[in-house]
Amino acid sequence: MPIQNHIVPKQRKTIRLQEYAIGIFTGIVTKSALKKAIKKHLVFVDGKLASTATPIKGSETITLHEDTKAKTGRVFQKKLEVLFEDEYLAAIHKPAGLLVSGNSFKTVGNALEQNIAHSLMTDATKPRPVHRLDYPTTGVLLVGKTRSGILELNRLFEKKEIDKTYYAVAIGEMKKEGFINVPIDGKEALSHFKIIKSVLSDRFGLLNLVKLSPKTGRRHQLRKHMAHIGNPILGDADYGKAGLILKGKGLYLHAFSVEFTHPFSKENVKIKKELPIKFKKIFNTI
């Protein structure tokens, strides 16, 4: 049964459906979510079953059908710290040990309605995360509250107009500052790092508080890049060096801030979350 329709405005050039349709439907706010809907045969263009490569030129009607197999019922009750909120978007602090989204019941996405106020805008929708943080990573996570808000935040990410800053604890001697330009999964990946402070460690030799700025958004990018230069992030069980993996304390990677021009108010917005206590225990003067 059709649940949402979208009429495509005139396009300057033909574009593939998987590139065009991100954010046009409530709940389909990422490329992966769109691909899943298409794979489940829920998306049609002018009444015909669509594929990711279906060409979009303008004037087409894109229809999203109901997923009759989708799970319904329970609500995930989880208190989240809200760092910023207006009628269009919000930001929360993502705790460690929690998925942002996916098939799991216990996700940030399933807890947002309990923490984010319903928007009063005419295109209000269920709040949705517009990007990802790894399961063990903490920090600032952006959320869209309206269909236009979700679409605009996605566009800002695509244009690389959202500056993200992370802090990590990296193991071993390393350069004070530099770029890591190493492809991930065959795609360009670029990260900048800068040491803020270093302390001696009996077990690890040297621990560095490192400021990280990803210039691209590949999966596990910062973790893979730091491991590539021989300075894995403390607590990284996936990419750490044998014998130097700290257990029981989690991953020392924190999404400290995001900064961007608000797509509607046009004001500069900077949202940050201070470093976790476990960072401060290592670098006790920060």
Rank of each mutant, 00 (worst) to 15 (best):
K194A: 15
S148M: 11
S198A: 14
R132P: 02
H192D: 07
K145F: 03
H220L: 07
D134I: 04
Y167H: 15
V130D: 09
H225R: 06
K126S: 11
T146L: 04
L190N: 14
L212G: 09
S201P: 02
G186N: 09
G139I: 08
T165D: 07
K175L: 13
N181H: 13
K194W: 01
S201D: 14
F179Y: 13
K160G: 10
V169S: 08
L190Y: 07
T146Q: 09
S148P: 00
L142S: 11
I196V: 15
K175D: 15
H228T: 12
I180R: 07
P136D: 11
V182M: 12
S191Y: 02
L133V: 10
G186H: 05
D134N: 01
K224F: 00
A170N: 12
L207R: 01
I229A: 03
L222V: 08
L141V: 11
G205D: 07
N208S: 15
L153N: 06
Q221N: 07
G230M: 05
K175Q: 14
G230K: 02
R203C: 06
L133T: 11
E158F: 03
P129A: 06
G139V: 06
V143K: 04
H220E: 05
K126Q: 11
V169G: 03
V140K: 03
T125K: 05
G139F: 03
L207Q: 05
N231H: 11
R223K: 10
N154V: 07
F157I: 13
V199R: 01
I195F: 05
L142C: 04
T137G: 08
L206I: 13
G205T: 10
R203Q: 13
L190W: 06
S198W: 00
E158T: 14
A227K: 09
I184H: 02
D134H: 00
N154S: 13
I150T: 12
A170M: 04
R219I: 10
S213H: 06
K145M: 08
E188Q: 13
V130H: 05
P129R: 03
T216Q: 10
D202A: 12
H192K: 15
G186I: 10
D134T: 06
A168Y: 01
R128E: 14
T138Q: 08
R128Y: 00
L234V: 07
K159H: 13
N154C: 13
T138V: 00
I171K: 02
L133D: 08
S201A: 07
M174D: 09
R203G: 03
S201K: 04
R203Y: 08
K211S: 12
L212N: 10
F204G: 11
T125I: 15
A168S: 14
P232N: 07
I171V: 15
K176Q: 15
G217L: 06
K159E: 15
D163H: 11
S148A: 12
K194M: 12
R155E: 13
K126N: 13
L209A: 01
R132W: 04
G205P: 05
A170K: 03
E188L: 12
E152S: 15
E161D: 14
R223N: 06
L151N: 11
L207H: 01
S213G: 01
G205Y: 03
T125W: 00
G139K: 04
I233D: 06
A189Q: 02
K176P: 00
L207E: 04
S198Y: 00
I184S: 08
N181K: 15
E173K: 15
N231T: 05
Y167Q: 09
R155H: 12
A168D: 05
R132D: 11
L156F: 02
I184R: 03
G186D: 09
